[in-house]
Design a protein around this nucleic acid. Structure first.
Lengths: 239, 239
DNA sequence: CGTCTACTTGAGTGTGTTCAATGGTAGTGG
DNA sequence: CCACTACCATTGAACACACTCAAGTAGACG
């Protein structure tokens, strides 16, 4: 709840787009020739800062440059998390049809975003087939991801959910060129539990068990994957 | 598995578009002036017929005129259902980015579809802002629906899932102008259980319990909602 | 009328929850 | 630098919901 400003210390703070760590995942860069008019570069948010309040009129899409965001809805004062977003991810595609943001968005750590004005993007879609195809692609991918998530959560038990969650963090970083087996969780146990629809106690117990079976090594927010194939098997990513 | 042809008996079989029951839900109709070139009208599928096999090259979107479809993936020979589609629904949006269908599609009953060639739709998006906005809208709605589904399935217990499922059938029909409290399930108990990630025994027990508490009256595939507000409360649709 | 499949019901088991207590860690102030 | 606080995470015990296995019933169809 602390929205007070803290100086950003992220190393990538002053990195120019050309050197941006997300590289080929950067939508604005890919559309360098066309999108620079609609792009606001490197907006900064501090840890725990609310980026968007649910219900705010929809205006722009957020692309994460560095850091992490979560999206959530609030029902009867209770937060329900429905997504974690990492560098290269785009946030807000669900809100186009409603003309308002369906979720609140909050920074999990100090975060830098690039932002796309949707009205301008829309115009570009009509003018530029490359932009059109890219946006349609992005949305279609989003739908596909959610389909898989639905399947995953309706079919998996707690252990599989958590394995799946950790494995997906790993592979999302890997897709972005960071193939390290050491992951720093930017969210709390309670956030994870909330998101997966299990309790924090269960998260804790399963993490302990995965340490006993030498699949992971856990130290607070730091997770080290010791047996990636066992993790992938548990995650049952093919389901 | 019976793909043999059976004569269609659907009453709406020969209904002209102007009188089509889905009315204002009909995307082709809304775009009457522009889409008739890309639209194949009233393709017929018989009960249990496979419309699309998973992996087939993506080519067209299906819009349901009458009947019902399900989509599913097959993992190690086991079917995992990830959606049921009713008249007015559009199927295939998830497959745009992959250039292949990610799911198999099967007719739950005799079904009539209209079909949109995606390549043509894409051209129209560039040419016509109305088409552009409609397609973006449809995709965004799809994303939003899946978000809700994820939340729903990660947070709800079996009773809430089933209540939610039945309530959503009711409200989807209601959105299409059919506000009847009597619903005919076009899918089997086993399909429902598969989709919700619970067992058929649990589905059965919960339906019995909902009859005892006079929320529903169940007779085979026919469900009559006796207490819609209690159902909505159980469904916790706000979550 | 008998067969096949779908659905329902029952009994026992197990996974994950709730409730409760304990252990750790980060941040704050003396 | 240590003590204190507050929050977060872990562990334990008892319970409950949904599962598995098994038997029985109803409905569809030849």
């Amino acid at each position: 709840m602390q929205d007070i400003y803290k100086p950003l210390r992220s190393k990538s703070y002053s990195v120019p787009c050309e050197l941006c760590s997300i590289g080929s995942m950067c939508i604005p860069m890919l559309l360098n020739n066309t999108l620079h008019t609609v792009l606001n570069r490197k907006h900064e948010f501090t840890k725990d800062q609310v980026v968007i309040h649910e219900g705010t009129p929809f205006q722009k899409l957020f692309i994460i440059h560095s850091g992490a965001l979560k999206t959530y809805v609030t029902v009867n004062g209770v937060e329900q998390i429905n997504g974690f977003y990492l560098p290269g991810d785009i946030v807000g595609l669900d809100s186009i049809s409603n003309n308002k943001y369906n979720n609140s968005i909050k920074a999990l750590t100090n975060t830098l975003t690039c932002e796309l004005e949707y009205d301008e993007v829309k115009k570009l879609i009509s003018q530029n087939a490359q932009v059109r195809d890219m946006i349609l692609d992005l949305m279609s991918k989003d739908i596909l991801n959610y389909q898989k998530l639905v399947l995953s959560y309706s079919q998996k038990n707690a252990e599989e959910k958590l394995a799946s969650f950790i494995y997906s963090l790993y592979s999302r970083y890997a897709q972005r060129g960071h193939t390290s087996l050491n992951i720093k969780l930017s969210m709390s146990r309670s956030d994870i539990a909330n998101y997966l629809g299990i309790t924090i106690e269960t998260v804790s117990r399963i993490l302990t068990r995965m340490q006993e079976t030498e699949i992971l090594s856990v130290k607070g927010k730091y997770i080290s994957i010791k047996n990636i194939s066992a993790l992938a098997r548990l995650a049952a990513e093919n389901i």
